[in-house]
Amino acid sequence: MGLKTSMKIIVINDMGTMRKIIEKMLKTMGFTNITQADDGATALPMIKEATELGVPYEFIVSDWNMPGMSGLDLLKTLRADDQYKDLPFLMVTAEAEQGNVVIAVKAGVSNFIVKPFSAATLQEKIQKIFKA
């Protein structure tokens, strides 16, 4: 799976601050096609609609803890659908406990990033996902 700067990315987070920071970091890495959503429940129809229109999202960066639909529930929902079983999914969380990593890995997460993080760490996580 290659890493192209034009890939369609959706950043999902209930906090506008973190959406802005992640989008800014992605832009400094050269990514240009970035959309935002404020929780899993908002993002899911956007992801499905984009697929139906033939312009699917190619990378998801989602927070874990969100009202409505959490990042974990979104991940499980997507992985249950064959067309999204390989969609790269980076989970962002404030909770640095090992148990969370295990839960996310079992649910099929592509990689995991714990807040606070730098642009360099985000880039490293993305590179790992797309090199795999």
Binding site: M15, N65, A94, E95, A96, E97, V114, K115, P116
Partner: peptide, 10 residues
């Protein structure tokens, strides 16, 4: 506050 609490929780 959210990030600090998440980190402190561990």
């Amino acid at each position: 506050a959210n990030i600090v609490t998440g980190n402190a929780k561990r």
